[in-house]
């Protein structure tokens, strides 16, 4: 099998995930895009493991770990999103800018 196929798939999937992170307004949608990026990484890991065939099976083992980590990360991420929703009644990224540098009027 041509190795370029899975690796290119991973690259494109990653880029789509990048677009999603930067373009989506809802925080949950951003989390979804992050999952896409993680999947791309996984495909890469598996493809290289199949290519290199090392004794430790590092690629596929690490893929399992990444999947578990992704699950933990989504859990925490959603917990944060829920807390933000409770406090601000919105999860739109555009509206969450309290850490901005205050403008001169606001400074006074």
């Amino acid at each position: 099998m041509h190795l370029a196929l899975p690796v290119v798939l991973a690259a494109l999937l990653f880029s789509i995930g990048v677009y999603g992170v930067l373009a989506r307004r809802n925080a949950v949608l951003v989390l979804m895009a992050i999952e896409l990026m993680l999947n791309a990484v996984n495909i890469n890991l598996v493809a290289f493991d199949v290519w290199l065939r090392d004794t430790l099976h590092a690629g596929q083992s690490l893929t399992l770990f990444v999947i578990a980590l992704a699950a933990a990360e989504v859990g925490i991420g959603l917990a944060i999103v829920l807390q933000v929703y409770r406090l601000r009644a919105t999860v739109a990224i555009d509206d969450l800018d309290q850490l901005a540098e205050p403008s001169p009027e606001e400074r006074r």
């Binding site: 989390l31 596929q60 699950a71």
Partner: peptide
């Protein structure tokens, strides 16, 4: 790519848990 275990774990955890979690998040927000 003959990574069988990874495939099933992907289905189990990603589709089975993570997407469900995301849908919960959609609902609760």
């Amino acid at each position: 790519l003959t990574a069988e275990l990874v495939a099933w774990v992907q289905v189990l955890i990603y589709i089975g848990a993570i997407v469900v979690l995301l849908l919960f998040g959609v609902m609760l927000t």
